[in-house]
Design a protein around this nucleic acid. Sequence first.
DNA 1: GTCTGTGAAGGGCTTCACAGCT
DNA 2: AGCTGTGAAGCCCTTCACAGAC
Lengths: 273, 273
Amino acid sequence: MSEQHQSHGFSARGVTGADSASSDPRGTVRDLPQATVTRLATYLRVLGVMADDGTLIVSSEELATASGVGSAMLRKDLSFLGPNGVRGVGYDVTRLLARIEAALGLDRGHRVALVGVGNLGHALARYGGFGRRGFTTVGLFDRSPDRIGTAIGGLTVRDATELEQACRDLDVTIGVVATPDDAAQQVCDGLVAGGVRCILSFASAPLELPAHVEIRRVDLAVEMQVLSFHSARKTEPDAAQTAVGLGGRAPRRPARSASKDLGSTKNGSVIAP
Amino acid sequence: MSEQHQSHGFSARGVTGADSASSDPRGTVRDLPQATVTRLATYLRVLGVMADDGTLIVSSEELATASGVGSAMLRKDLSFLGPNGVRGVGYDVTRLLARIEAALGLDRGHRVALVGVGNLGHALARYGGFGRRGFTTVGLFDRSPDRIGTAIGGLTVRDATELEQACRDLDVTIGVVATPDDAAQQVCDGLVAGGVRCILSFASAPLELPAHVEIRRVDLAVEMQVLSFHSARKTEPDAAQTAVGLGGRAPRRPARSASKDLGSTKNGSVIAP
DNA sequence: GTCTGTGAAGGGCTTCACAGCT
DNA sequence: AGCTGTGAAGCCCTTCACAGAC
């Protein structure tokens, strides 16, 4: 429906749909590159610290450095949200913060259901991180009789068989799966049946879901194995490399997230400079 | 140094260094695309299940489907390890498993130090996932007097001030940071000083490290916020979409990892089909 | 005939470099 | 003069389609 507008420098394949291009008068934005979405969350965090410090204005260079990206990429990321800065000056910290929050939909508040309160799930339930920035945990579920009925962080663990109905009743928007692999698919099915369309899974099992459900997986085993590869690439080399690594007291380099959808460091190379 | 060899269809920018191209007679492989490394870990898991089931031969189509990727991509990924299959037949499960394990350096065994045994760290310490597949947790550290001296999963929590020396003594190859943000940089410095060159961080603070240190970050807040964006993109739309979502009982779609370095689903689009 | 291995085409993301506003 | 916003170039990755081995 409607017409392409194509107001930005990219092609038309972002992460939204329907109309493409810019942002409507209010906060919502249409069509952001996947990689940009991931980084916006990073900028948000840095901006939060700056706001707390009382910083009022920040330049793309400063914010980029603090976020561990290049200033050009930062500017392009922000440009997808429409004009956000003042040329010759910089960005208004508070305004930019609000702009990104709106773009990520954090201003609507999210209701989170957590399934599986074993080792990891229990830690997540008590983890404050979910509570902040617009996320509220509204339900805990497990299938173990030992855990059902126990209280964690103010919530009582419910029977996983109630999951579907509870998701509807509680109006859950995001489901977090922290169960063993063998239960993950079934749990996801329950979440989806309950109307949940966004899932964060810590199970390593591959999951099948309807196309309209968005899933993100965090697999610790994969992360460790990727590191293992890089470790191997540093331990056994045919010499030459440590020479470089030590020669000039290698300059510090900002860290890039592993969970980003794209380009960890930026180029994929990890060889000595 | 040395010469480029360029035996594969890609350009010369993989993730290793020194010589490029193929694999030496033994297991080690030089120059893999970052994205391929991440997926190899996924294949490994699926192959493990198949091996346990007694499957002897698997085709690229089968393995790809079970891993949630396209068969062409799977074949290209595997081709970086050299010839692994038999044309007209498929891949020998056991052999491929061993090949990937060797390529990821999992056959050397890794010694892991975990710093921060609070909420999340405690769960990770007890999490069996690290223990399997060649990873051995050899040290737990924290700076809280309440935790130092306690035992978790057979290990005693040590004072974080001992970190640097302990990393040397224990020959730690991978450090896991599960501390609060304000301690993360200091902990990383300690790990690096102790000779650790691969770090997995759960802190959301950006970290600065020497260029020869590989870091991967898992940031739960970022994951949640990315989901928030997608949730917003599904909740408020201008109609038209639910129609599609329900119309044909949307076919199941394999899940892609969030923690991959590249292309979650493959295209970045999340609009209705 | 079947299935692997791979050049070539296509797409998305990042980097560069500069136009444009203050 | 300074800094943002952005076309264009380049890079890396994915997908296609087929040559090649069994």
